[in-house]
Amino acid sequence: MNAIEPDRLPGQLAGSGICIRTGPFVSRIQSRLSAVAAGLALLYPDYPLADPDGFTDFQVRLYTPNPLRRWWRPQVQFAMDGRIPFKPLPLSQAYPLLEWGLNWCITSHMHHYLLIHSAVVERNGLGVILPGEPGAGKSTLCAALMLRGWRLLSDEMAVIDLDSLELIPVVRPVSLKNASIEVIRRFASEAVISPPALDTLKGTVAHLRVPRASIERMDEPARAGAIVFPRYRSDAVPAQAAPETPGRTLLRIAQNTFNYSLLGERAFHALTAVVQASRCHDLAYAELEEAIAWFDRLSGEADG
């Protein structure tokens, strides 16, 4: 996307749009909204653009639904292929709505993959699934791992090929919420984070740019070798890891699988195989550094 001059980006977005490829998915994004252009310029400069005349999986448009309303209570609407899946949001949430909308496109339509609500990272060939149970803090941990050299596959969903059972990268900016925005700023001063959108449905939300190394490897699948259920707990000093049984892991991860009901028995067997190939753990942590040290040991790297 570096190929587009920054001052030409808004014009192109307003016209035929730009086609960004994130792993196997190509999204055409169209919008006249300056927040969308600014967010894409900040977070997607290292992404490959797809042929604007080629195939796109999703045609996405963000716009102001009622022009008159602009002067009174400005809003933003998300449409995919002309469908409007969400109520409009305040205009200040335009950029988060783009990212949420793209997530929705995948989780609602890509049922030839098994889709688990989880972060996925990889190091030394070890793919790790971090399911997004409530209170897990998966995005914070995932962001920290990514900033310490782990490859990001996704902060939001594990995309598993039903035949090969490989983890398919869908590398996108990491969504940070509320206190975790400041936590990650303190953790890595070099982190590039979008301006926070206040008072969204999820509180304050900002997005973190993904290091180029992860983007460059977005066509390289990984093998799941560990499933870790993280839990942020302020009293977990030192961090505590405990093995989880395969059966409980299967049920817990199935509960976090978007299309488990839809895929039925196929999902049951695919998840079973993924669990079978993985070491399964609960990890309670208070300090990111301790959690990262644990993950580094998991991937067979010396503790330094």
Binding site: Q240, A241, R297
Partner: peptide, 13 residues
Amino acid sequence: MATEKDIENKENQ
């Protein structure tokens, strides 16, 4: 803190 044993937990049967 996790022990090496935790990490070495043998493959699930």
